[in-house]
Amino acid sequence: MEKEMALNDVVLSIRGLKKQFGNLEVLHGIDLDIIDGEQIAIIGPSGCGKSTFLRCINCMEDPSAGTIIFDGENLADMKVDINVHRQKIGMVFQQFNLFNNLTVLENITLAPITVAKKKISRFDRKGLAQIKKDAEEKAYALLRRIGLEEKANVYPSTLSGGQKQRIAIVRALAMDPKVILFDEPTSALDPEMVGEVLDLMRSLADEGMTMVIVTHEMGFAREAADRILFIDEGVIKEEGTPAEVFDNPQHPRLKDFLSKVL
């Protein structure tokens, strides 16, 4: 019963995903179904391929083989308009990557406005104004949520790392994504700023946002994720609930890894 429901609600279905850089194969075939509303944490030693895997999901790195089914289309197929699908797959980077030449507000509204504009005539001035108004209202609402409303018109260079990363998350949220990919979102932060970012992610998780998180924060993974994937040597070596993975690890590599990080 539970499994059937789960199948119906698969957001992203990945099969046989491989990635080669030149002659070096870093992912050897990964299968994963991402269920609507679940939070998956991906852990593993440095260089194991976990970030590469995450970046393959929205084709920031083009997969060498395999399929990624999203919205009924295979994202790994070069003929698919990847831009349309990326609008529904948010991504948060380790280095935040806020647009340096735009204000905080523009950072959040650029993509929604650009996307909405494509759907109306270039000469529909009223429509354009409405789009801008809607996008800004939404951006303000999101900024209010993270308590950074007063930063709407400043440039990213004036913000702290924690503020930048929260705004980067809000930028992803502004597109109403079906899933958000987090690529080590707290690794570049000063320790005192990790908390504010994790708090925001936790509150998203509580609201049922589908999230895939590559992280070194084992505490956060255990507490906030529904499912933990342990990737090592380019394959998923072990997966399960946090309790299974952290309290009763099976694979020797996972045991070894946990003994080092916990």
């Binding site: 831009n83 980077f93 990557n97 647009f99 340096n100 993509a111 980067a168």
Partner: peptide, 15 residues
């Protein structure tokens, strides 16, 4: 320009 800027733009679905 930091390549992350291009990545971030592509990641939100901009061409």
């Amino acid at each position: 320009v930091d390549p992350g800027q291009m990545e971030a733009g592509r990641a939100v679905g901009l061409s």
